[in-house]
Design a protein around this nucleic acid. Structure first.
Lengths: 234, 234
DNA sequence: GGACTTATTGTAAATAGTAAAATAATTAAT
DNA sequence: ATTAATTATTTTACTATTTACAATAAGTCC
């Protein structure tokens, strides 16, 4: 930092900062991303990742949290910082640097949607994301890569699944994320070390043998991580 | 982006952006970080990660690249984006958001050091990083975590090692990074799939049986990745 | 040559991963 | 009620990989 801030103040303190918040969900075997339809220029009418400028007194993560809340009414969930994008010409109206965050929500718990933000929102399967506004396709791609890395090293798959889920749903999530087919019996062997709560309840309204419902045992997981040196690995 | 930029221009386009560049090297069995001693306020005299404001027409990565060059004369090496830090009060002189990058250099090829930047620079083993200026300890910690993840998934260890290295040096690098002891025989078995060029040359000036020297076979590696679906995994 | 240090190879046991078959629970038709 | 069909779940056998440990080979230094 060799610059004299007094002299160069105007030149350097003239950037703007935004945060884009990728909201992922899981439904019917597909991981989905919440997109908004922009209701103002630039890129009016285009689909985009929700985002907003960061307020002067606001931390980056706070801003992402605010965007998430405005759109979904969800509070207090983990936000994962992704990459930051700052090409000088990425925003037509000035030098706007954007920092991407992503959140993972239980899609069945999200109802309140569409606000002052955008007149339209929709969940789009991540394998069928359309052309987006700004450099949002690039932001999506790099964030998805990060999501995939975290899915294989941290138990964040359970943030996407409903509170009670079947083992098949868990498997489908990984199959969709990595575009692979997994052997069912082996998958179950592999997830054996992960502490799950087995419910007496079963799947309903299916026309075949219903599967048992499970929940992630977060407390037991924490204990395992701290006491033995257990590591989540998929 | 629901804001009217015309009206709120002054309020929002008043941030500054900096880039911090963590430069990692490997020497005598230790992974080291290049630190500078600040020669101006704030935090004058404190050790810090090298960084500078981003110029108006400059991309983030370009800025990181410039910092790296000013300090080491090294050009055209890969820069890895780490996390971005933007707490409103992180910089005493205004709202400065900083985006961290890290680079990995061959420490023996870096000589030119100390510039207009700082009157003092030094390589510090990453297990003995002192209290740093600003929030630089936080930046270092999160970047180190990312470095460790990349070390286990990409062949970037060879960016740290000299062009010709011994297998022991390679092992020491991983042992130091993850603070573990590895079995020599098994380590050599594990790295078997990685394509290395075996030189006729041997280690010199050691008072024991000299080890063979190896280089990373980048071309063969690329071919493996593309043709079969080979993955680097440590 | 002999002591010493490190490199390199070998082997057996333990662990993890894979494929396929067997069994259980449910719905729906007969 | 019996049976077929479908899917969930468990079991078994097999294969490959990882780990631990021992043995041997190849240099340096005196």
């Amino acid at each position: 930092m060799t610059h004299n801030y007094k002299i160069e103040f105007e030149k350097f303190f003239s950037y703007s900062l935004s945060v884009d918040c990728l909201i992922f969900g899981f439904e019917e075997g597909e991981i989905k991303l919440l997109l908004i339809k922009r209701n103002m220029d630039p890129f009016k009418g285009d689909w985009a990742i929700p985002g907003d400028l960061v307020y002067p007194e606001e931390d980056l993560e706070e801003a992402a949290s605010r965007i998430l809340f405005d759109l979904t009414n969800i509070k207090n969930i983990e936000l994962h910082q992704s990459q930051t994008f700052g090409k000088p010409d990425r925003h037509p109206q000035g030098r706007v640097i954007t920092c991407a965050y992503f959140a993972m929500v239980k899609i069945d718990e999200v109802n309140a949607i569409a606000s002052s933000w955008a007149n339209e929102v929709k969940w789009v399967p991540i394998q069928r994301i359309p052309k987006l506004a700004f450099d949002h396709n690039e932001i999506f791609n790099s964030s998805l890569e990060l999501l995939k890395i975290k899915l294989s090293n941290e138990p964040i798959c359970f943030d996407l699944l409903p509170d009670k889920f079947t083992l098949n749903e868990l498997q489908q999530l990984y199959e969709y994320a990595y575009k692979v087919n997994l052997n069912k019996a082996n998958f179950r062997k592999k997830i054996k070390p992960i502490p799950l709560i087995e419910h007496n309840e079963k799947q309903k309204n299916v026309k075949h043998r219903p599967a048992k419902l499970f929940s992630f045992d977060e407390h037991k997981f924490e204990r395992l991580v701290n006491q033995r040196n257990f590591r989540f690995k998929m």
